[in-house]
Each structure stands twice: as C-alpha cells, then as structure tokens.
C-alpha cells in the first residue's frame, strides 16, 4: 500500500520565480519523513509538488523528475487527477467540506468522483476510516451532523479519515498541527505513528520537537536570502540530524540559532 518516492533534480517555479532548486531525495515507504526549515525555504512548495497540487496555482510549474515506485508523476502521459488519488494530502488548517455531514466527508473522495458504493460498503468504509483516524468513538453517534461542528483537532482527524478512505499510497501532511492545541497535536502525532505501518508519510513541520518525535528521517531545507530559491541542505535519519548533523546550517537551525 505504500510507495517509494524519488526526486531527481527538481526545480519548482511560481511563474518566473524559482522557489525551489535542485532537490534530489529518496523517501522510503512505511516511514515518516519530516521536512524542516525556516519559513519560505520551499518545504511546503516541494511537498505540494509530490501530488501535483503545486501546479493548480496560475503560472506554477515543476521541472525534473519525481517518481512513485519508478513511475514519473510528471510524465506527459500522467493525469494529475490519478496522481492525487494515489498521494493524499492533509492541509495546514482543517478543511472538512462544510456542506457535508461527517459521514459524507469521509466518503467525499468517492462521492465527489461519482463512484458508486452500496450502503453497507459505505458504512464499513466510514467506520474503518474513522477508526483509522482515532475519531470513531467521538463521532459515531452524530455521523449526520455537519463536519464543521467538530473541534479543530477532530476536524483535522476527520480530514485524515477522508484522506485514508480513498486508500492512497502516500499521505502528505502540510503542518497538520499548526492550528491545533497541544492535546489535539498529541492525538495527531499518535495517529501518524500508527499510519506509518501502512503508508509512506511526509510531514512538513515548523515544530522541531514534533519532527524529532514522529519522524524516522528528516530533511532540512534552507534559503540563502529573500528572492533566492530554497534548497535541500541535508537529509538523514532523524536521530543523526538532531544529534550530529553534517552541515553547520542544520546545526544552527536545530539548536535554535536562527529560524
């Protein structure tokens, strides 16, 4: 169920502006990979290019190769819609569909794309996905209520359930806890540890403790100055990055000297 992601010399642009330059990396399956770095260093931009969400902005484009188990997702013969159904995404702010009930939110991936499903299959999927997101016990009695009525942390787990429900190979998380309180953050972090049994997980975070807590591998991005493109500085096992990084800038960042 999980795939290996490889990036080869990826440049990412907003119009003429080059936001990310020369990123090459391998992201292992059944592993949590954290992207850390100061604001504007391109970590979110790079994350969004892994499921081809970057290009939905006008003028935005990507050069280079990003492969899922060897298949280039930027091949001209590849439909971005297919890529996105394989690579799910959880956003910075919880964004359940406000016009849908909790149940419909979980089924959104199927409903939106017009796939038919029997009621019992749908019920099973809803329960399985909500259990997978550690939310079932809290919402099982109000599945028909609007998803927007939940707390922020519950909404974010609902979004994870919605992502899990379409059975992706990879789950991308763009600062999934930045809008949440510490207790909800803990719940999401526990969930991430469970999810990595089945999925390739990539998480962008501003919180270095969070990266240290949940990730197996850490990639540090940095930027030389405003207007310059962001670059991948160093990537390795999380313990190593946080104890004996090879690059001075990484050490400066993780010890809080800047960022």
């Amino acid at each position: 169920m999980s795939k290996r992601i490889e990036a080869h010399d990826v440049d990412i642009f907003y119009g003429k502006f080059k936001a990310v330059e020369g990123v090459s990396m391998t992201i292992e399956p059944r592993n949590v990979t954290a992207f850390i770095g100061p604001s504007g260093c391109g970590k979110t931009t790079f994350l969004r290019s892994i499921n081809r969400m970057h290009e939905v902005l006008p003028g935005a484009h990507v050069t280079g190769r990003i492969t899922l188990d060897g298949d280039n997702i930027y091949d001209p013969g590849v439909d971005p819609v297919t890529v996105r159904s394989m690579v799910g995404m959880v956003f910075q702010r919880p964004n359940p569909f406000p016009t849908m009930s909790i149940r419909d939110n979980v089924l959104a991936g199927y409903k939106i794309n017009g796939k038919k499903m029997s009621k019992s299959d749908a019920d099973d999927l809803v329960e399985q996905s909500l259990r997978g997101a550690n939310l079932w016990e809290e919402v099982k009695d109000r599945l028909d209520r609007p998803g927007s009525g939940l707390s922020g942390g519950q909404q974010q787990r609902l979004c994870i359930a919605r992502t899990v429900a379409v059975h992706p190979q990879v789950i991308l998380m763009d600062e999934p806890c930045s809008a949440l309180d510490p207790i909800s953050t803990l719940a999401i972090e526990d969930l991430i540890r469970e999810l990595k049994e089945d999925y390739t997980i990539v998480i962008v975070t501003h919180n270095m403790q969070q990266a240290a807590r949940v990730s197996d591998t850490t990639a540090f991005f940095n930027i030389e100055g405003t207007g310059k493109p962001g670059k991948l500085i160093e990537m390795g096992p999380t313990e190593k990055i946080f104890s004996t990084p090879e690059v001075q800038a990484t050490e400066d960042y993780i010890t809080g000297r800047f960022g």
Binding site: F97, P98, G109, I112, N113
Partner: peptide, 27 residues
C-alpha cells in the same frame, strides 16, 4: 469559494468539474 476547500477536493483526486460540483456549487 474558499481555496482550502477547492484544494481539499482536488487533493482527493477529483477532476476540476467534480471539484466545482463538490465545493463551488454547495458553497
């Protein structure tokens, strides 16, 4: 239409038209 919801629909693997049906019209 909130960009957040449009992107949520796209990230679930919907086409542009499906995204519009799921987010723009209900909104």
């Amino acid at each position: 239409t909130p960009r957040l919801h449009e992107e949520a629909a796209l990230a679930l693997g919907s086409t542009k038209w499906d995204m519009i049906k799921a987010t723009v019209f209900p909104f």
